[in-house]
């Protein structure tokens, strides 16, 4: 997962190569554990389940070195991050070192103590909710998961924790998007986040949406956000501005400039947390060493300085989108440098 509140970014492009030589590491997405108390159909981190996790003391040292490197924000994700016994220690340490944090959680383990700590450290909390109804949510996330959400939301609200919901849209739930956005508003979430399921980990290709389904999803999300005047955050769909118009809709784009590091449970630095291309290792190199290695890696160069093929080369969104999601291109099209296969322009339906 990516997170919803990314730090602002500054461009520093070399005028001759277009390659940014002054990238600063601002954001870490840390897939802290692959362990989980659920077994969702679309889990992308299941592929790390046999890997040894970074130990608590080492994790704390990584946060210290992240602070020295100038990191502004760490998004902890999993697996279920609240299964890490040291999660609050890591959040507390980050907070003391001036690093803001967010977590992505299924909410099962949010008791009063956890909610109070999340409030104390101002942790933006992203709750995984995969349907607008109990039936659909539990079809994806398992029996009993819906009823655990409501007490978690009550506690977050009670302790004043800012939270959003995230829906991994797939063939089982995407038709509930309008109702989902209404529900997030009713729950007083800060936003409803939407991310397409990728064919990684446990996710079967049948769950992955087709381009026409994604186009429909964007259109109805845009309409619902506008009519409800409610923020909707579109993750991993950098082509979305080709479709969306509402001022309540925001979408991220990870290829505009390099300022993010994705760390796997074992310390491997991945090109993207859904794609198994290792570009360094924070346990072996530390944060600054790994960042230097990531920046100089041949695959990083290919992703951030691409030669865009048509239709991307003619697209009004190309400066931000830069070909879209390279992980999806690799996983679906078998070509890391191909245009994003879910983009409606690429699919010639827009």
């Amino acid at each position: 997962m990516t997170e919803s509140k990314r730090p602002s970014k500054k461009a520093g492009l070399d005028s001759t190569t277009g390659w940014n030589h002054s990238q600063k590491l601002e954001l870490i997405i840390w897939l802290l554990t692959a362990r989980c108390n659920l077994s969702c159909l679309h889990c992308y981190s299941a592929r790390f389940s046999d890997k040894k996790e970074i130990e608590p003391g080492e994790a704390a040292n990584i946060i210290k070195s992240a602070a020295e490197a100038g990191v502004k924000h760490i998004g902890f994700t999993g697996g279920e991050v609240l299964l890490r016994p040291d999660i609050m220690d890591l959040i507390s340490l980050a907070s003391r070192l001036g690093i803001s944090t967010n977590i992505v959680t299924n909410g099962f383990l949010i008791n009063d103590y956890v909610a109070e700590k999340l409030a104390e450290y101002n942790v933006f909390t992203v709750l995984s909710v995969d349907g607008a109804t109990k039936e659909v949510h539990e079809k994806i996330r398992g029996k009993g998961t819906w009823n655990s959400l409501l007490p978690a939301i009550e506690r977050l609200r009670h302790f004043g924790v800012s939270f959003a919901t995230v829906m991994a849209i797939n063939s089982l739930n995407y038709d509930q998007i309008p109702e989902y956005i209404q529900l997030a508003r009713k729950w007083q979430a800060a936003a409803a986040c939407i991310i397409p399921v990728m064919p990684a980990g446990k996710a079967n290709k049948d769950l992955v949406l087709a381009p026409d389904q994604v186009l429909w999803a964007l259109q109805v999300a845009d309409k619902a956000a506008e009519s409800l005047e409610f923020p909707v955050s579109l993750w991993c769909m950098p082509f979305a501005p080709l479709v969306t118009r509402s001022k309540y809709v925001v979408s991220d784009h990870c290829r505009t400039e390099l300022s993010e590091m994705d760390i796997a449970p074992g310390g491997e630095v991945l090109l993207c947390d859904v794609l198994d291309i290792t570009v360094s290792n924070v346990r072996e190199k530390g944060i600054l060493g790994a960042w230097q290695e990531q920046r100089g890696h041949p695959v990083t160069k290919a992703i951030f300085n691409p030669e865009l093929p048509p239709p991307c080369s003619e697209c009004p969104q190309k400066a931000q989108c830069k070909g879209g999601c390279f992980a999806r291109a690799a996983l679906i099209s078998g070509n890391l440098c191909a245009p994003d296969p879910l983009c409606p322009r690429v699919a010639k339906i827009l």
Partner: peptide, 10 residues
């Protein structure tokens, strides 16, 4: 096979 990958000069 030995390949040259232009996107990454590799």
């Amino acid at each position: 096979d030995l390949g040259y990958w232009p996107p990454g000069n590799a």
